[in-house]
Each structure stands twice: as C-alpha cells, then as structure tokens.
Design a protein around this nucleic acid. Structure first.
Lengths: 225, 225
DNA sequence: TAAACTAGACCAACCGGTCGGTTTTAAAGA
DNA sequence: TCTTTAAAACCGACCGGTTGGTCTAGTTTA
C-alpha cells in the first residue's frame, strides 16, 4: 500500500508533474484528477455520499471508470479527497481569512454570518452547508470522515476564539466575556440556522435567529462609559 | 386511489378493527403495520431514507415484502408514515407538553434543552435529531417530506412563542423582548448544537453553546427592580 | 521502453417493486 | 353452533435496473 493522506493512488507522481508545470497549466493526469474531485464534490453535495452515483460523477467529469480507479482506490477515498479539497477552501474564504486579522471580532463575526444569509447562492439555501450535510450523514458510519469533519469544526472554533481573544485584548470585547461560549453559540446557531432554512424556506425565521444572535453578541461588548 | 393522508392502503379497515379491540391489543394487521413503522423509523434513523434498505426493515419487523406492499404503496409512503408517527410523538413529549402550561417559559425552555444534552440517549449523540437528519437529506429532493418537516418546525416555533407570550403577560419575560427572535435562536442553536455534537463528540463545546444560550435567555428577563 | 494514464466491457450484489397464490379472519346464513 | 364466503392479510419467488468495483487491453508521455 503506497497511499498517502489524501487517499489517492497516483499523487506522488502527480505532484512531481505539477511541480514541473510552472506555467499553471495542469498535466493531463492532474486535470482528470481535478475534474473528478470537482464532479465528486458536486454530486455528493447534491445527493449525499452514499447516494452519490459514480456513473454521474464520471459523466460530469467526462472520464471513465478506469481513470477514476487509477486515481483513487475506491469511492470512499474519492469522497474524502473531494470533501477535503472543497470544504477547506470554503472555510478559509468565508471565516479564516476575514477573522485572521480583524480588530473588531464581534462585528466581523456578525458580518460573516450576514454574508451567508444575505449573499448566499441558490445551492446554499437548497442544499445547506456541505460540512453539516456530511456531518449528519457520515459521522455515525465512517470514522475517517468524522475525524476530518471534527477537525474542521475545531479549526473553525479556534479561528473564532483567537479573533475574540484579540478583541478582548484591544478592548472591543468585554473583559469578562467567555470567548469559548461565544464561539460555541456562533457555530451552533449558524449551523442550525442554515439547516433549518433548508426545510422551512422561511427567511424571516433565519433573520430572527440572526438578529437574536447579534443582540447576544452586542451584550459581549464593553460597557460604554 | 383510496389512499388517506397517512399514505397507506389498508388503514380504513385497520381503523375499523382497532376500534373494536377496546382491550388495547392490536389486531393482526395493525400489529404488522406498527412493527413496520417502528422498523422503518429505526432503519431510516440509522442510515437515512435513501440508504434505508427494505430488506433490513422487513427483517427487523419480521415481515415479508407482500405484507409491506399491502400496507404501504411504496418506500416513500412508508418512510413518511414512520416519520410522522415518531417525530410527532417526540416533539409532543419533549417540547409541546412541557411548554403548554409553563408559567416561566425562559426557565422551562432552558430545561428542555438541558434535558437533551444531559439525559440524551446514545442514539441522540451518535445519530442526532431525526427531524434534522430528514431535513438535511430529504428537503431538497422531496416536497412531501419537506412540507411535513417545515410544519413540524412551525409547530415547534409556535409552541415556543406562545409560551414566551404567556411569560410576557405574567411578567417572567421582559415586556420589550422580541419573542420571535428568542424562539428562532432557541431552535437554531439547539439544532446546530445536536448536529455539531455528532461529528465533534465534544461535550464541552455543546455545554458552552448551551451556557451562552442560557445567558442570552436570562437577558430577556425583566430587570429586577 | 517503462510508467502513467485512459478506455469500457464485465461482474456479483443489492435495490425497490410486482404478482400470483395461500392463509387468516370475521361476518353472514342456515 | 356450524358452515360458507369474501375480503383482508400475508407470503416469497421473481423482475429489470443500478450499484461499486475489477480486469484486460490500448494509448500517451517522458
């Protein structure tokens, strides 16, 4: 077994190649691999991992079974690699980057959340959050998926707490605030809000939950003296 | 087509019979029907609707295909009936009954939530909330499921708001409180909390979120004068 | 020429669903 | 009380289709 952490078969070679292609174009094999990851993520996002059809993925990636099973040992490895590639990017863009340097975390956390509800695309409202979907489906039945998802939650949490901790230091967050509790409620209420929206399609409910969270966040500011 | 709202085929006859059996024992047909609903709910709770196997359900209910398709037109109707039967009961017991007559809604809402985290069974933590699982999986792909789930959310919400409204009247909830916002945050954060717990298995995170919610709820009490 | 990659026919297992037939049940008739 | 009868309930072999996965052969690339 010469599998690496990404669960693919031909990655060491692919790395060698893509390192060579300094102009940004992908080598043939890497292009197929990337197309498979994209198609797999889309299919899994739409139907869940267990109901995701390899035939659909193959069609979307314009690729055949032989190629797929050259790049990945099985469906499980493909799904995990697709999740890693996409979910990481998403959290980086939506949370980690905005919070990495913020000087007013309570405001910017609220902005992150508002971003989802007000500027979310159609897929977000119809399909929800990929992290949450995979958590629901895969956590109980696959430990490898669960560990990756738990790790993502942990990263999310520490991005929130370190931003909040900076806020305590610079005086935008109350000294007595419990930053672990704030982070936990942000995560839970945001996840629950996106998830609930999927079934209810009731934006007023989502806006109410968001407003309540914001009013809670505002109680965590220092008393204006 | 002589189907009723429960999506079964043989219910009118079953009703006639069970009405006769005043001693509480179920007629043969009703017993298999109930066994099917139980087994279907368990299988769907464990694996999701799409991955639920009729063969497994049949084995658990000790019943054959012919029986199943005598009582229900298809897998979809079975799943929907199983969800209706179980989720309704659950919410009645956990939320509607405790909140129906409470004189101190903020306290009793907190108690409901605490009940889940502190006295939840193994399945709750491993598999999460059935309402949420079904919402995630079925809302995007099946309108009939979605409507049932949305209705359940709506009932939950109005149980919360009417309890809170009673609290405003009797002075246990602040006059200026926005009860819709409170209800929305309770639902979102509770759902998100249960869902997150499934992947992280981190009870400290769940307790933190709960503590934050409770501190928010306490800000909604009247100022003690 | 060796390794990486692509191709797609093929496979057993399982899927939800159908259907002709048998057994059980309860009410009606004698 | 016993018999008849029709419907309700149950049975399980069978069906076409799909699933994830395998395998051999051929092509491209370095």
């Amino acid at each position: 077994m010469s599998q690496n952490l990404n669960g693919d078969r031909a990655h060491s070679a692919a790395l060698k190649k893509s390192a060579k292609e300094a102009d940004g174009r992908l080598a043939r094999g890497d292009k197929t691999r990337a197309a498979l990851l994209d198609a797999a993520f889309d299919e899994i996002y739409e139907h869940g991992f267990q109901s995701a059809s390899l035939a659909n993925i193959l069609r979307a990636a314009d690729c055949t079974k032989g190629s797929l099973y050259h790049h990945f040992p099985d469906k499980h490895a493909l799904g995990l690699a697709a999740a890693r590639a996409n979910i990481g990017d998403h959290f980086q863009r939506m949370w980690f980057t905005p919070l990495a340097t913020t000087e007013d975390p309570l405001t910017d956390i609220a902005n992150c959340i508002q971003q989802y509800i007000d500027n979310g695309d159609e897929r977000l409202f119809r399909l929800g959050c990929p992290l949450q979907n995979l958590s629901q489906e895969m956590s109980p039945i696959d430990e490898e998926f669960r560990l990756f998802l738990a790790e993502t939650f942990a990263n999310w949490r520490s991005a929130l707490t370190s931003a909040l901790s900076r806020g305590v230091d610079n005086g935008t967050v109350c000294q007595t605030a419990n930053i672990n509790q704030i982070a936990a409620l942000v995560i839970a209420s945001h996840q629950g809000n996106i998830g609930t929206l999927k079934a209810t399609r009731d934006f007023s409910l989502a806006h109410d939950a968001m407003a309540a969270l914001f009013s809670y966040l505002n109680t965590q500011r220092p008393a204006s003296t």
